[in-house]
């Protein structure tokens, strides 16, 4: 399973966001605010979800904030961290 598919499945399950797996979902859509409506509590949950499913910790939430803007940015960030 590629990173993006695995990420979308994890987020859909753990943040209760079935729309992520719906056909035609825009992977560039903002996850926070007006997009999917996630907020600061979801952000810290996201850190845990990534830790659980991809095995690394995001310590700096500011770094996380940029990476969290969409499925595509987050997927790219995970690939980058995993290759380090």
């Amino acid at each position: 399973m590629d990173t993006k598919t695995k990420l979308k499945k994890a987020l859909a399950d753990e943040l209760n966001l079935p729309e992520l797996n719906a056909p035609g979902f825009d992977d560039d859509a903002p996850l926070f605010g007006e997009g999917l409506g996630l907020d600061s509590l979801d952000a810290v949950e996201l850190v845990i979800v990534i830790q659980k499913h991809f095995g690394f910790e995001i310590k700096d939430m500011d770094e996380g904030k940029t990476a969290f803007s969409s499925i595509n940015t987050l997927s790219a960030y995970i690939d980058k961290r995993l290759s380090e």
Partner: peptide
Amino acid sequence: DSISRDGDACTSPIHFA
């Protein structure tokens, strides 16, 4: 479950709240 399964560091903040 979130604590038992994945360890203290994976405690779910949403479930905690």
